[in-house]
């Protein structure tokens, strides 16, 4: 396969430059939110809570807050970039250039992953001022941060293609990503829920993403790791294949 490496690198650079052009919105805003979450939930409320699953409350919620920000940033980076390019029609610059469909997808996804990781790194640095923020299994930490941001970059790609307005662009974030993140055990152990709700919580893929990152940081896990990994790999393969097909047929980008 003949890869347009220079084109791909330029495309990625363009996506990253776009992120830094609106740094207040793309980086500062999630970092401020993270400070507030860590301060209120971790410090203020957490100081009145005993150990949870054997760790301090602030250390328990930190991986969830971190993952929530990685998810949201990766998703928004790709969905808004692609949507605005469609809206302003400069997606045509990409369509007339010698890119394969895979290269187009890779460029958007790398942009999303980079933003997810930068936001995640910032949240982690902020957390150091409030707690130990230990990472027990560094490579597992990196794997979850990277792979989950990839999943949500791909999801952002599909929403960026599908959305016909700003309202649709935010629908998934407001009605799916945010509630499932909160219900996926950011602030509570699954064992704090009634038994029926625990079964429901185990059907929530976000529970596995947050649990995986939590395991890598504080060494406790409440989920089946195999199921978590299966969800991640299936999501990347499924969303990637669907994205590739939609680019190939030119869904909402080519008339």
């Amino acid at each position: 396969m003949n890869v347009n490496w220079i084109g791909l690198g330029t495309f990625v650079l363009k996506e990253i430059n776009r992120m830094f052009r609106v740094v207040l919105q793309t980086l500062i805003s999630p970092w401020i939110s993270a400070v507030l979450y860590i301060l209120i939930f971790g410090k203020v409320i957490g100081s009145r809570i005993d150990l949870i699953a054997g760790v301090k409350y602030i250390d328990f919620v930190l991986p969830g807050i971190l993952m929530m920000n990685i998810i949201s940033s990766s998703f928004t980076q790709v969905s808004s970039s692609l949507y605005f390019q469609r809206f302003a029609r400069h997606i045509e610059e990409i369509l007339v250039a010698p890119f394969s469909y895979l290269e187009m997808i890779v460029a958007y996804v790398v942009g999303g992953v980079v933003r997810g990781l930068i936001v995640g790194l910032g949240v982690y640095i902020i957390a150091i001022f409030f707690t130990e923020a230990s990472i027990e299994h560094f490579w597992i930490f990196l794997f979850y941060a990277f792979s989950v941001s990839m999943v949500f970059s791909l999801l952002g790609l599909l929403v960026g293609l599908w959305a016909d307005g700003f309202e649709q662009l935010n629908v998934l974030n407001i009605f799916v990503i945010l509630p499932l993140s909160f219900l996926g055990g950011v602030f509570n152990s699954i064992y704090m829920l009634p038994e029926g709700a625990q079964t429901f919580a185990r059907l929530n893929p976000f529970f596995y993403f947050i649990d995986g990152l939590r395991y890598s940081m504080v060494g406790i896990s409440e989920a089946n790791t195999i199921i978590g990994l299966f969800i991640i790999f299936i999501s990347i393969a499924g969303l990637g294949a669907l994205g590739w097909y939609l680019f190939k047929i030119g869904y909402k980008i080519r008339s």
Binding site: N4, W5, I6, G7, G9, T10, F11, L13, K14, N17, E93, I94, A97, P98, F99
Partner: peptide
Amino acid sequence: REILHYIAGFYGIR
């Protein structure tokens, strides 16, 4: 300048 740089890059120009 950015517009021209990006497009040149897209076409594989070093």
